[in-house]
């Protein structure tokens, strides 16, 4: 994160116009391998974006840098108009963000993982209340009530005192969604959330996400292999290839009439597999 002098906050980036999430020229390399290649992407508030593409194309990295699980080598990421990895200094130019600043911005983003990552030594209720109590400073009763509401929303109000290992994969993933929502994020990231599940358990998780999309004005980014779900649920679908957005459009455009060869090849390969 050294070559940043060109990126300064411009007057156009006022909060009203600002997209909820913006990637500007974001580059991420692992040694020789460039995973994100000068990526530009803007997501409006409340927009549901599905990200599809071959494995190794950088889809998950896109979410992971937004969650600050990975650092970026170049470019700027903004959430709700605030730069995520950088902060403006006294002159208005951007410098690498302090840990404290980053924690503040990161609070606007929540993430659900492919492998759930529930805390195995805590009950479902503790899993959901831990961060609101420790990070947001909620009182126990408040956090508990919030947990109960969210767990009711994902249909697990009767599993409060269970441990993760006593739940099915689909139930665990629903708890993980409730856990992320308990932090009241503005942006939710779903990283292949059904990939570790048996096919018959995917539905219950997708249903929860569907309901979430209807009920809240949440901005959502999801990396998924479920083309059917992407088509039905997303406002926009991005086809990711070699670290860049190769093609994007509404589900009907992208699935119905893909323009580029690489996209066509990928989609027909996926269709054949099903």
């Amino acid at each position: 994160m050294t070559t940043l002098s060109t990126h300064t906050a411009t007057p156009a980036d006022t909060p009203q116009d600002a997209p909820m999430v913006a990637f500007r020229g974001v580059t991420k390399r692992y040694g020789e391998l460039t995973v994100l290649d000068h990526l530009d992407l803007q997501v409006a508030e409340g927009e549901k974006v599905a990200i599809i593409g071959p494995s190794g194309s950088g889809k998950s990295t896109l979410l992971r840098v937004l969650m600050t699980l990975e650092t970026i080598d170049d470019g700027v990421i903004e959430v709700d108009g605030q730069p995520l990895t950088h902060m403006p200094d006294a002159n208005g130019s951007l410098v690498p963000a302090s840990a404290r600043y980053q924690r503040g911005v990161r609070g606007m983003v929540g993430m659900v993982f492919q492998s759930f990552n529930l805390f195995p030594h805590m009950t479902v209720r503790q899993n959901v209340t831990e961060a609101p109590i420790r990070v947001l400073g909620l009182r126990k009763a408040e956090a508990r009530q919030r947990a109960e509401e969210l767990l009711a929303m994902v249909g697990l109000e009767d599993k409060l005192e269970h441990y993760p290992a006593q739940l099915s994969g689909g139930q665990q993933q629903r708890v993980a969604i409730a856990r992320a929502l308990a932090m009241r994020p503005k942006v939710m990231l779903f990283d292949e959330v059904t990939s570790a599940l048996d096919p018959e358990l995917c539905g219950e998780v997708l249903n929860v996400i569907r309901r979430l999309g209807d009920a809240h004005n949440l901005t959502m980014l999801m990396v998924t292999h479920q083309m059917g779900f992407a088509r039905e649920f997303a406002d926009r679908v991005c086809f990711f290839n070699e670290g860049q957005i190769h093609e994007q459009g509404t589900p009907d455009e992208l699935f119905g009439n893909p323009q580029r060869e690489r996209t066509q090849a990928f989609l027909s390969a996926v269709n054949e597999a099903h």
Binding site: M67, T68, L69, R103, R106, G107, V109, G110, M111, F113, S115, F116, N117, L118, F119, E130, A131, R134, V135, R179, A180, M183
Partner: peptide, 15 residues
């Protein structure tokens, strides 16, 4: 301890 545990903590903004 699986890496995912630390990542979940990070995503939840735990100190």
């Amino acid at each position: 301890v699986p890496r995912g545990q630390a990542e979940a903590c990070h995503a939840l903004n735990l100190s």
